[in-house]
Simulated assay, not measured.
Amino acid sequence: MYVIMSNYFQSSLINDPAVTIFVLCTLAFFQPSSCVLQNEIKHYIWKSVMQDLLNLTIGPFSTKIDATLYTADLKDFSDCNLSVVKCFQLEMEVIFYEYKFENDTTLRTKVGNIIKNVNFLLENDKQETKTSKWQQCETFAEKNCTDFLKIFKTFAQMCYTELKAK
């Protein structure tokens, strides 16, 4: 059996698709077994979200965006609440949709990155998502985009700090 597998593997190295399939199958079995690794990934993603939000708030983007968005009140939340994260993500999709046809590719790229990163965070917290009680976004107050981005940045910093403490 060893000889057959060895010959198969050696002949597969000549074939590019076979190598690609082998590598992908090997990576498919890799599961982060440690909670520490998952927290490091979340930590990195929140840091990326904060950087994109910072670029949106200090750049000329915040003056371009005149949408009114549902914004969570942070005084009621002491931890990284998934329903609040979901609402921020949905409102970022509103911004993305509103400015889909703008010529500003940097704005669309930053907003798109934030949406993708927050989606990744929400998908990887499926266990918490099932157990947490969702609060409707419409229950939050409507604020202008500049305030929304500042509060979202503060919330992202809270989540980042919470992960750092773990």
Rank of each mutant, 00 (worst) to 15 (best):
D125N: 15
G59A: 06
C87N: 10
L122Q: 05
N117V: 00
E91Q: 15
V111N: 02
I114R: 04
M50Q: 15
V49R: 04
Y97S: 11
A67N: 13
A72K: 04
V49Y: 07
W46I: 01
K126S: 13
V49L: 05
I95F: 02
T68H: 11
K47M: 09
L82I: 12
G112S: 14
E91D: 10
S48R: 10
T109W: 03
Y97G: 02
L107D: 03
T63N: 15
W46C: 07
L54K: 07
K86T: 09
Y44A: 13
P60N: 15
K64F: 08
G112C: 01
L74C: 06
S48W: 00
E123F: 02
M50N: 14
F96E: 06
V94P: 04
K75W: 03
T71D: 11
W46R: 07
V85T: 14
I95M: 05
L122S: 04
T106S: 13
G59P: 01
I65S: 12
M92W: 04
S62Y: 10
C80S: 04
F77L: 08
T109S: 10
V118H: 05
K47G: 15
L122D: 05
M92D: 09
F61N: 10
K116C: 05
L90S: 11
K64Y: 09
T63A: 15
M50W: 01
A67D: 14
F77K: 06
F120M: 05
L90K: 14
L74T: 08
L90A: 12
N124S: 08
L121G: 06
E91S: 05
G112V: 00
W46D: 04
K47R: 13
Q89L: 07
T106I: 10
N119L: 02
P60T: 13
T109N: 12
L69M: 06
I114Q: 05
N55C: 10
I115Y: 00
K64N: 14
H43N: 14
D66C: 11
L90V: 05
W46H: 09
C80V: 01
H43M: 08
F88W: 06
Q127F: 06
I65L: 13
S83Q: 08
Y97A: 06
D125P: 00
Y97L: 02
F120D: 03
L107G: 05
D66E: 14
L54G: 09
D125K: 13
N103W: 00
L53I: 01
Y99M: 03
A72C: 10
M92K: 05
K47H: 12
L121Y: 04
I58T: 15
D66F: 07
Y99E: 00
Y70S: 10
N124C: 06
D52Y: 00
D76P: 02
K126P: 00
L107V: 02
D73A: 07
Q89P: 08
K110R: 15
T105D: 07
D66Q: 15
I45V: 15
S83F: 00
C80A: 09
G112K: 07
K75T: 10
M92R: 03
K75F: 08
L53M: 11
G59Y: 08
Y99H: 13
D125G: 05
L56D: 01
T63V: 15
K126C: 04
E93V: 01
N81I: 06
T57P: 01
S48P: 01
F101G: 01
